[in-house]
């Protein structure tokens, strides 16, 4: 072990992983979800190939239900950094009016996220997709490899994973198989925020607290960007000082009450806050072991 700090060690490891992807694959692509982890991953990719450009495109799977501020931020970033950004939408599903309150969250995710992602990867002919998932996010992620093979149907088999030793990665694939690579595997939520702070990385303003109109339901704060979010009797919209702890689709991402309007305040909040960040994401709780099931089906 060297005398590097933990952030330096994590950064160096992630850069090593990104360079391995570029060295081992013909057509890699980086999944870009606009959130804080994607912002960190983007910075790491800039560092890995500097002074050259990032040698692969970025892919955003747009469910059309993302927050408007996310889309604005995405397009600004792409223009400012000269990124090769590809936006993919599941046209048939969007035209059919698929939305979580009509078809349920499981089916909605399956069609607009998992299905759309697999289609985009297949159409692009990508052999490796780089994602920003972290092992500390959810229990089933804790066992996923950094180089994680998907079968010809894009699915993950948790019982048949390749052993992964040292920093040596097995990138060999059979025709039709693909690989997901997770350079942020060993980062925690706190590491991500500290790195954003140290590196001054731009993030979507939704992460910072300010008064926003919210539908208050028990302890949940539901954003009202989409007209189909049902309002129950007695509920009304209130201006609430709040922020997003993680970013997904607006109907399925709750806000949290917060005064944290700067990075140090956010970090302070996270330290005092012993709730895992995905608790406000409805989709992880719709059945026991639900993330593992989604991942088996091909969800990131």
């Amino acid at each position: 072990m060297s005398s590097l700090s933990h952030l330096q060690r994590l950064e160096a490891e992630s850069i090593h992983i990104l360079r391995e992807v570029a060295g081992e694959f013909q057509r890699p692509v980086m999944l870009y979800s606009i959130g804080k982890d994607s912002s960190v991953m983007l910075r790491l990719a800039q560092k890995a190939f500097w002074p050259g450009p990032i040698p692969f495109p970025l892919l955003h799977v747009d469910t059309t239900y993302k927050f408007k501020e996310m889309i604005t931020f995405r397009d600004e970033q792409a223009a400012r950094l000269g990124l090769n950004l590809i936006v993919h939408r599941s046209r048939p599903a969007v035209e059919d009016g698929v939305q979580p309150f009509a078809v349920g969250t499981q089916r909605c995710c399956q069609l607009l996220k998992t299905g759309a992602l697999l289609t985009a990867l297949r159409e692009g002919g990508y052999d490796a997709a780089i994602g920003g998932a972290r092992r500390d996010e959810e229990k089933s992620r804790a066992k996923e490899r950094i180089f994680s093979v998907r079968d010809t149907a894009g699915q993950w088999d948790p019982k048949n994973q390749r052993p992964e030793l040292w920093n040596v990665f097995n990138a060999r694939l059979k025709p039709g198989e693909s690989i997901r690579v997770f350079p942020l595997s060993n980062w925690t939520e706190l590491d991500i925020w500290q790195y954003i702070h140290v590196e001054q990385i731009p993030i979507v303003p939704l992460y910072f607290a300010k008064p926003r109109p919210m539908l208050v339901r028990g302890e949940s704060l539901i954003p009202l960007e989409q007209p189909f979010v049902p309002v129950l009797p007695g509920e009304r919209t209130e201006m609430v000082m709040c922020r997003m702890r993680s970013l997904g689709c607006s109907p399925c991402t709750g806000a949290i009450r917060s005064e944290a309007d700067t990075l140090p305040k956010i970090i302070e909040e996270i330290i005092s806050f012993r709730r895992s960040e995905r608790e406000n994401r409805v989709i992880d709780h719709d059945q026991d072991g639900s993330m593992e099931i989604k991942k088996r089906e091909g969800y990131f």
């Binding site: 072990m1 700090s5 933990h6 060690r9 994590l10």
Partner: peptide, 27 residues
Amino acid sequence: MAALADRPVFDVDQFLAAEKHKDLLRF
């Protein structure tokens, strides 16, 4: 985090400065 909570007053700037030098042990 336990030790942090035990401190009388939590100062985030102090925390961030200390974090910069914290190392990592893999076991």
